[in-house]
Write a protein that binds this DNA or RNA. Structure first.
Lengths: 220, 220
DNA sequence: CAAAATCTTAACAATTTCTTAACCATTTTC
DNA sequence: GAAAATGGTTAAGAAATTGTTAAGATTTTG
């Protein structure tokens, strides 16, 4: 269930949004000022922020600058092109002017929450001799079938989604946490080791590279 | 240079968009019908599609269904909430109604082209022959790969963030303290020394300058 | 419910990185 | 110009990270 933080000081608008989201089964969190929003942002991780611009104490624009990893949809009465452009360029992902249409808001929320590359629709993830099937357990190495466990599959999938890009251990653990509850760094090492052994059985190329002190990546 | 495919049958609008994008140094590709768009999509990989809905032969909506991995911004005269919601839910990433504001279009394009989490957006830090790659934690010197340790990477990153600007030793220690717990001034000296040696292996230019009694900076 | 598969924990070795400390060079201070 | 402070280099030992293995716990499957 996705967590959405609503930052809006107008109580009636706030309530409208909250109800709309709850009907769609989102979990909502409420901030009625910029300072309150910042406090909540420290406490919890959200999947999306709906942000009004004109707020007591700290403005919405300042919040955009501070938030780096959560998508933001600005909901504002400011219709000027300048306001929009500023927000979008400084980090907001979308800008909707009030009054807004509920269905459009929901659609734009869905756009932000869905994976950027709609890889879930892609059947396989390919990289060199590896081909990860979209069935949660099959890896083809040189077209030879290999069975992966759920965790191994999750790890390899994350790595293959961004080849040649380091994923930190914590990030990786975070990304696979949907499938695996209590996998820690030690456990992750074991899984990686097992994965490497399975891959080594069919190809000489070392695919999973360790970046010392950082994490792992799929080797060039 | 990002590649943008413009799909629009109205020639005058098409030209306006094309000029706008070229001024921003995007590479533009032109399709004047849905079928032409599909042909071009097979030939080349684009970073973004600007898509009109009412097209000859194949409609924009059908193209949205077919394209899975490229972000799409719909540019349409249809202002109805239904049209917007349909496009967004079936795969479009944004929807702008005509007539549109040029600056807003450019801003929304930038939103689509930038990495989803702005965190990794600190893409690469370049300075003369040095190129610090954020996404895979490596340093390129004259395009030659060099391995840095976690601490060396952290130090160089801070220095390169503000070239030609002195960072005091304490400030530097503070900035890298997230990655390194008990690194003191003496230790910092050793790391800097090691960094200089690694850089010297590939280039003659002395990059890290010591400011006596103060700290370090990247040399002009 | 028993067997099989998978996962976590823990121990160990191997490896890499970091800090410490010593020594020397350079600059500043008195 | 001598003494003190700062900076650079080096090597060794300490500390941290990683890879591997096996055993026991947990979950899944038949």
């Amino acid at each position: 269930m996705k967590k959405i933080l609503i930052v809006e000081d107008d109580v009636s608008i706030h309530n409208v949004i909250e109800e709309l989201l709850k009907k769609e089964n989102y979990t909502t969190y409420n901030a009625y000022s910029g300072t309150e929003a910042l406090l909540l942002l420290e406490k919890e991780k959200y999947d999306l922020i709906l942000l009004d611009l004109m707020l007591p104490a700290i403005s919405g624009e300042e919040i955009i600058e501070k938030v780096k990893e959560i998508p933001i949809i600005v909901l504002s009465a400011k219709v000027s092109s300048n306001a929009k452009v500023n927000c979008l360029l400084s980090g907001a992902n979308d800008y909707i002017t009030k009054p807004f249409d509920g269905k459009e808001l929901l659609a734009r929320i869905e756009v932000q929450l869905r994976p950027k590359n709609k890889y879930s629709n892609i059947e396989t993830l390919k990289y060199k001799d590896l081909e990860l099937l979209n069935d949660n357990h099959t890896l083809l190495i040189n077209n030879k079938k290999t069975n992966l466990t759920k965790t191994e599959y999750a790890i390899l999938k994350q790595l293959l989604l961004n080849p040649n890009q380091v994923i930190t251990k914590n990030k990786l653990l975070d990304l696979i946490s949907i499938d695996t509850e209590d996998c820690d760094e030690n456990s992750l090492r074991v899984h990686i080791s097992n994965l490497r052994r399975k891959i080594k059985d069919y190809t000489d190329h070392e695919y999973i590279e360790s970046i010392w002190g950082i994490g792992f990546k799929i080797k060039d």
